[in-house]
């Protein structure tokens, strides 16, 4: 039981430390105001490398971003911004 609480404590301390580290380098703008390019870079990287926009066609990106909207819990607005960015950059 002690081990469990110790692990939770470690995770909490780690999260707090990372928060402090990150707060020095974070833009003050609200998350909901971020551009498609920013959302593409930041959200993809949370799990895997950011995909190159030229990997897929406009039509294919429509399907892939819908898939990722569900998988990564993106809002519809975020998904729309990301797909628009990918279509202009591919």
């Amino acid at each position: 039981m002690k081990k469990k609480y110790f692990s939770i404590l470690i995770l909490g301390v780690l999260a707090l430390t990372l928060s402090l580290v990150n707060s020095c380098a974070t833009s003050s703008s609200l998350a909901s105001n971020r551009s498609g390019a920013q959302l593409w870079g930041e959200n993809c990287l949370r799990c895997h490398n950011s995909p190159s926009p030229e990997t897929f066609s406009d039509t294919q990106w429509d399907a892939i971003v819908l898939h990722m909207q569900v998988r990564a819990n993106l809002t519809s607005n975020e998904a729309k911004k990301i797909v628009e960015f990918l279509k202009t950059a591919n």
């Binding site: 999260a15 928060s19 990150n22 833009s27 998350a31 971020r34 930041e42 959200n43 949370r46």
Partner: peptide, 13 residues
């Protein structure tokens, strides 16, 4: 429930 406290989504708990 996932909480992302920073606008750049760098941290999630």
């Amino acid at each position: 429930l996932g909480i992302l406290p920073f606008p750049n989504s760098s941290l999630e708990v």
